[in-house]
């Protein structure tokens, strides 16, 4: 599972960070500091919850087979 973040679209709500601060670090201004990552085993649920928490829906969850499972298209 992969997370891809449309970083330039981040407005700094920081809800992803509130759910999983180590997966979704913030920069000094409070915007998300990563463009995405490969989710390590055991953290799938946390990564997904962080993605779902984004009010702007700019955090994309890509499953193993490459399909986008969040946000709904």
């Amino acid at each position: 599972m992969k997370i891809r973040i449309e970083k330039a679209q981040c407005v700094g709500n920081a809800r992803c960070h509130a759910v999983a601060d180590h997966l979704y670090p913030l920069d000094a201004e409070g915007y998300v500091a990563t463009e995405g990552f490969e989710v390590v085993e055991g953290e799938e649920k946390l990564a997904r919850n962080g993605a779902r928490a984004c009010p702007e829906r700019i955090i994309v969850v890509l499953d193993e087979d490459g399909t986008q499972s969040w946000p709904p298209r």
Binding site: V11, H17, L26, E29, G30
Partner: peptide
């Protein structure tokens, strides 16, 4: 939102 959020975000 981009304009205002820095004033209400965690860093500020």
């Amino acid at each position: 939102r981009m304009f205002l959020m820095p004033h209400f975000g965690p860093a500020r």
